[in-house]
Design a protein around this nucleic acid. Structure first.
Lengths: 222, 222
DNA sequence: ACCTGAACACCGTTCAAGT
DNA sequence: ACCTGAACACCGTTCAAGT
């Protein structure tokens, strides 16, 4: 799909009625209002007011649409003012990325990419790698530090989004409650002792704390 | 679905032709040979030799089947011999869990649970929580340590499985290669300098290294 | 109690044709 | 060049009926 030339001279063929931006906007509305499970090509086409197959002229398919959507939300994240101290810079950057994505539970589905490749989000790996090198890491170790932070961050978002979804549409007592009710204290004494506190403790948002521990482990204080 | 009574006396109704175990076995064969994207209720029914709707008498639906499948693979993990030293115990336990799941890329889809709740895998949180407490953590902090390790572990598995899948069925140069080819060295100097090394560095298996850093950050040396 | 067949309400995507 | 309609090859699940 190529960008139309800025010239207003007549070009051959039928003039476009919908653009890629229209499609991404429509998809964004669906996903924010109805959740990612309702993001179907047919639903997007209806929202944009065209035939399902019209989308394929502007977008490769559902998978690419999801990637464009991730890029769209990443654009909202203006790289924040970051502290000068390298480790604090990493913490601040990762926290900003996490906060944005945690607000949009649907990104979890789009996040199964080995790296965060949205052009609008590349400042994040850049920042982490740069800060790690500034702190004394080799380039190899800096990339390793970034990846470790990214796995933790993405894992937290994906898993907590799934838990929230389950809480939303599960009416019956959750599997977790059942499992914890039947624990044998002789086999699993710690879990049995925790009992109902487990649910409460795992519902807490401890991303920031875990992140700090991770950064400290990756870049130990000198 | 209830377990049939051990008695051999005639019970009312039609005798069962398939069991839940048959279904799980069939699903396991499909998933190991053809990937999770081919795990459909209809495909499982064909594999087990019955009508699609017969499955619903033994299993609540596709989601529960995936959970049963996860439990099935977790059973293969006999809790390994664990070192006595608490931090090493955590590292050994997490490494064993990671190694098993990394061998079965399909578990990534089943892993979007807020905790690992398969009865056969509960020794894992038990071990981590117990070791953290033995190291001096409060129960709250021990649960926090477990969750942080779990987010990192699950994130690593999910994201690397997705990357492997993309490498497998992507013929064209990947999006990553495109993005990295067009980096502006003035805006993103570190990433531009890394260039093609990025792909090589992110393909490495560094789970164990990241895990050690995480454990050190969570349970600092005394 | 367990299984079946037909049906419902969907999917993503290809293909050939229209403007 | 861009859009459409019809069609293909699927889904998960409900429902009513059979054994």
């Amino acid at each position: 799909v190529r960008v139309p030339a800025p010239s207003s001279r007549a070009r051959p063929g039928r003039p476009p009625r919908i653009s890629r931006a229209d499609i991404v906007d429509a998809a964004r509305r669906i996903v924010d209002r109805e959740g990612v499970q309702n993001l179907t090509m047919r639903r997007v086409a209806a929202e944009v007011g065209g035939a399902p197959m019209a989308l394929y002229h502007h977008v490769r398919g559902r998978e690419q649409l999801l990637t464009l959507l991730l890029d769209d939300v990443a654009r909202e994240l203006v790289a924040p003012d970051l502290p000068a101290e390298p480790r604090e810079r990493i913490v601040a950057a990762a926290t900003a990325v996490h906060a944005l994505f945690a607000h949009h539970p649907w990104v979890a589905e789009a996040l199964t990419a080995d790296d965060l490749l949205s052009p609008a989000a590349l400042w994040f790996p850049e920042t982490v790698v740069d800060a790690a090198i500034a702190y004394g890491a080799t380039p190899e170790d800096a990339v390793h530090a970034y990846r470790t932070i990214w796995y933790y961050t993405a894992g937290e978002i994906i898993i907590r989004a799934a838990a929230a979804r389950r809480r939303a549409d599960d009416t019956a007592p959750t599997l977790r409650d059942q499992v914890f009710a039947e624990l044998d204290p002789r086999q699993l004494p710690r879990l049995a002792a925790l009992g109902p506190r487990w649910a409460e403790l795992t519902a807490r948002d401890t991303y920031a704390r875990g992140l700090r521990a991770l950064v400290e482990g990756l870049l130990p204080e000198r």
